[in-house]
């Protein structure tokens, strides 16, 4: 399947639940590479990409967290005005909807790294290829 595996964790909005996730990962030497949180007044969905997703899922499940794996697209775009807009316009033209988007820090520091969740990863990948935007693979993201 196209894309990078992302783990989502459901958080009842109780103080400390997020801290428990990060503590659990830290105790198991799992590094968080990318992270975003969507929340409402009552609950949140934490989305993370780690350097060991299988282990992360396992240790979180052991702590009774509700988790889900899904695939997202990771891209690297030039760190300049209009770069992201070009990508989003291309998606829009092809009728691909973007559910959410977040940026994370790459190692090179020259380009911007962005995670995009679209409704159709295969078609999303095609569109990105057609406009010359390189996709980051899961292997690349894990390289330190």
């Amino acid at each position: 399947m196209a894309g990078i595996r992302q783990i989502s964790v459901f958080l009842s909005n109780q103080a400390g639940r997020l801290a428990e996730v990060t503590k659990t990962l830290a105790e198991n030497d799992i590094d968080i590479i990318a992270l975003s949180i969507a929340d409402t007044a009552q609950y949140g969905a934490l989305r993370i990409i780690t350097d060991d997703n299988d282990k992360a899922i396992r240790v979180l499940k052991e702590k009774s967290f509700v988790t889900k794996i899904n695939h997202v697209l990771g891209i690297e775009i030039p760190n300049e005005p209009g770069a992201l807009s070009k990508v989003l316009l291309a998606f829009d033209e092809k009728g691909i909807s973007v559910e959410y988007i977040y940026a994370f820090v790459g190692k090179s520091g020259i380009n911007a790294r962005v995670i995009i969740r679209v409704n159709d990863n295969d078609r999303g990948t095609e569109v990105l290829r057609s406009i010359g935007i390189p996709l980051i693979t899961e292997d690349e993201i894990l390289k330190k």
Binding site: S8, Y43, Y100, R117
Partner: peptide
């Protein structure tokens, strides 16, 4: 309590 199988990364699904 939410069913684990239903959980989605999209807040819009839960809402």
């Amino acid at each position: 309590e939410m069913n684990e199988a239903f959980f989605s990364d999209k807040i819009s699904d839960i809402n």
